[in-house]
Design a binder for these strands. Structure first.
Lengths: 218, 218, 218, 218
DNA sequence: AAGTAAACGAGACGGTACGTCTAGTCTTACC
DNA sequence: GGTAAGACTAGACGTACCGTCTCGTTTACTT
C-alpha cells in the first residue's frame, strides 16, 4: 500500500526512529555544559554523559562540537524574536539592543557565539548554519522595526528593493556589531544609558543619511 | 638555525643569547601556521617544529596557545597604526574602516581574532592582554580622528572629559563592531561602497546627535 | 526462494518459521568472511551484510561470534569423516594425518580453530560445543583405525575398556596435537614425507609400548 | 650486568630515555590482567591503568595487544629453560612434559598462547616473534635431551645433520603438540600418569623407528 | 477471510575499546 | 642556565563493533 497522497511524511523510513527525547536532552545538556565549562572545556563525551546518551548518538545527529553548539544556542535566540511596539523608532531600537545584550550576557551564549564564529571562518557549511539558525532570524527584527518606523512616518519608504535590502544589512551589522563588540570585546555592560546613547546616534544617522522622507505618510 | 656570524652575543653566562631569534621565529611560525591551519588545528608542537625550536622554549615564553597567538597577531595590528589625514572626517573614517577591514581579511587575523576573543570570555588575564595588545591601540585612531575633526570644525569640542571618553568608546564599538560583524559574521566584503555608506551613516549621526549632550536629562 | 511444495517442516509452533535459507547463507557468509578477514577482523555486522540478513537474525540463532564460527567450521570437518581402508595401520594413519592437515591448511579453519580454542579456555559452554561439533567427531576416526588394525592383527585387542578409552584419547591427542603444532605453530608444511616419518614413529611406539604385543613382534 | 668495555649503544640518542621501570610494570600488569580477565577481555587501557602508565607509553613500545602479550608471556617461558638430568630418556621426557604442562595450566599462558597463535596465522611478523620469543627456546630442550640420551647410549647418533634437525623438529612437534592438545583442546589434566604413558609411547617409537644405535654404548 | 504470533529488514540505541592526537611537564645530554 | 630531543601523564577525539531495542512488514499456521 502506498500513502495515497503526501508521501513525504508518513513513517516511510524503515528501522527504529530517532528518539526525540534524546535531541532535547542533548541540546539542554549542551547549554548546561556551556554555562559550567565554557566552549573550550566542553567535550562531546561530557555532553553525552549529561544527556544520558551515548557518544554515538551525538555524532549520528551532529558532525561535531561546532554544529551541536550552534543548534543548542539557536534555540535561545528563537525565544527573543517577538518585538513589542514601543511607539517610536528610538524606543524600538533601544528595546532590541537591550534584549540582544541580555542574550549575550548569558554565559552560554557569551562563550559560545564568538567561538563558533571563529570556527566558521574556515568552514563554509558552518557559517551557513550559523546564518540560517541565528543571524537571519535576528535580521527580521530590523525589517520589522523599519516597517513600523515607516508606517509612523519616522523613516522614508525606500523605493528600490535592492537599496532597501542593502540598508537593512548595514543597519543590522551596525546594531549587532556594536552590541557584540561592547559586550564581548570591550567587555563593558550594555546598560540602558549606553543603549540610549547608541540608539540616538543610530537614529540620528538614519534620519539624516537616508533619502528625504516622502511628504505624505501612508 | 645558524647564528649569522661567529658568536651571537657576549655575556658571561651561557645559554641566554638565543632568545631574540627564537622569539621572532616562533611568532612568524605561529602566523604561518594560522594561515595554513587556522586556530583550531594549530598546535604548539607544530609551531615549535616550524620555528626549529623545542616545545620547552615556547612554554618558557608563553603560558599557552592563546597568549602566543595574541602576541603573534598583535604585531600585525601595530603595522596599521598610522592615520594619514585625508582632509575630512568622512574620508578619515572611510580610511580607517577600509584599513581595518583589510586586516580582518588576512587569514591569520580572520581565524585568530574571534577565537582569542571567545577564549577571553572566560579568562580575564587573556582579555586584558588582548585589550592592551590590540584593542586599545586601535582606539587611539578614534581619538586622533576626533581631534582632527574638531580642529577642522566638523565636530564640537566636548567639555566634559568623562563624556568625551564615553563617546570615544561608543564610536569605537560602533566602527570596530560593524566592520567585524560585516566581515566575519555576515561574511560580506567590506568594500569602498559599504565603507562610504557606513561612514555616511555614522558621520551624520555624530553631527546630529553629539552637539547638545552634556546637560541632558529626559 | 520458496519451499518446493507442501509443508516443508512440521512444527506446531505458531508464527512465521525461521528461514532455512538464512541459516545456510549465514554460515556460508561466515566462512567467506573468515577467509577474507580472519577471525579477529570478522564482525557480526559484516557477516549479516554478506548474508543479506539483519543482525537480529544472527543473534536469534547464535549467542555470539564464537558460537557462530564453531558451527560454520564444523560443517567443514564433517566432510572428512569417511576413512577409506588403505590396507595397513601405517597407511591409514598417514591418510588421516594428511586429510586433517589439508583441512588445517584451509584459511577459514586455520584462522578460526585456534581462536575458538583460545576463547574456550574461559568458556565451558563453548568448549563443550567445540568438543561435540568438532573434536569428538574426529576421534571416531581413531577408534575406527584401531579396530581395523586389530582386525588385521597389527594391534592387540585391549581387554580393559577403561584402558582402551584412555589409549584412544592419548593417540588422538598425539596425532591431532602433532599435526596442529606442525601446521600452525611451527608453520611448516605437513607433506607426505613428514606424515610418513611421524606415522612411523607413532606406529612403532604403539607396537612396542602397548601392553600385549601382537603375536608377531618386530 | 654492565658492559665493561664495548659499550653497545652509549646514550648517543638525544632526548629523555625510555623508562625501564615502565617496561617491567607494563609486562607485569599485562600478566595480571590476563589472569583476571583472559585474552579477549584484556584491554590496552586497562593494562595502562594497572601499570600506572599512559596509553601512549604502551603504544610507543608495542604495536598492539598481540605483540604486548607475546612479550609478557615469553618471560614466563624463559624461567623454565633449565633441564635437570633425571638419569634416563624416559625420566627426562616425563620431566619436560610435566614442566611444560605446568606452564600451560597457568591462567595467563592458557588463555594467551592459543590466542596469539590464532592471531599469528594472519600475521607473519607476529609468528616470527612468537617463534623467537617462545617456540625456539623450548626446542633447545629437545636438543639437550637427545644429546644426553645419545651420551647414555639410549639413542643412536645421527650422522646426517639435516636428518638430525628434521628429527628434532618432529619430536618437538609431537611433544609440544600432544601436551597442548591434551591441556587446551581435550581439556584433560596432564598428570604424571598421562605423562608416563605418553612418554613410553614416544620413547618406544624413537627406539624402534630411528636408525640402529651405534654398537658401543658408553 | 481474518486473526495471531513469530521472524524479518532496517537502523537507532547505550556501551566499551580502539588507536591517535594534543597539551603541558619532565628528564637527559650538550653547551 | 638555556637548549634540542624526546619520553612522560592525562584525557579528548572520532570510529568501530557489540548486543539490544524498537519500528513497520511479511509469512506461515490457525480459526
Amino acid at each position: 500500500m502506498n500513502p495515497p497522497a503526501g508521501r513525504t511524511s508518513r513513517t516511510g523510513r524503515p528501522g527504529r526512529p530517532r528518539s526525540p527525547e534524546a535531541d532535547l536532552a542533548i541540546l539542554a545538556a549542551t547549554r548546561a555544559a556551556l554555562v559550567e565549562l565554557g566552549w573550550s572545556k566542553l567535550t562531546m563525551g561530557d555532553v553525552a554523559a549529561r544527556a544520558g546518551v551515548a557518544k554515538t548518538t551525538l555524532y549520528r545527529r551532529w558532525a561535531g562540537k561546532s554544529e551541536l553548539v550552534v543548534d543548542a544556542v539557536a534555540a535561545l535566540f528563537d525565544a527573543h524574536l517577538d518585538l513589542p511596539d514601543r511607539g517610536s523608532l528610538q524606543a524600538d531600537v533601544e528595546d532590541v539592543v537591550l534584549r540582544f545584550a541580555a542574550l549575550l550576557e548569558r554565559p552560554e551564549t557569551k562563550t559560545a557565539l564568538m567561538a563558533v564564529v571563529a570556527e566558521s571562518t574556515r568552514d563554509d557549511a558552518l557559517r551557513a548554519r550559523i546564518r540560517s539558525a541565528i543571524v537571519d532570524r535576528q535580521k527580521t527584527l530590523v525589517l520589522l522595526g523599519r516597517e513600523r518606523a515607516q508606517a509612523r512616518g519616522e523613516l522614508p519608504y525606500e523605493a528600490d528593493p535592492v537599496t532597501a535590502a542593502r540598508n537593512a544589512d548595514l543597519i543590522f551589522d551596525v546594531i549587532a556589531g556594536a552590541v557584540v563588540h561592547r559586550a564581548l570585546v570591550s567587555a563593558e555592560p550594555v546598560d540602558p544609558d549606553w543603549a540610549r546613547a547608541f540608539t540616538a546616534l543610530l537614529v540620528a544617522g538614519l534620519r539624516a543619511a537616508l533619502p528625504q522622507p516622502p511628504p505624505e505618510g501612508r
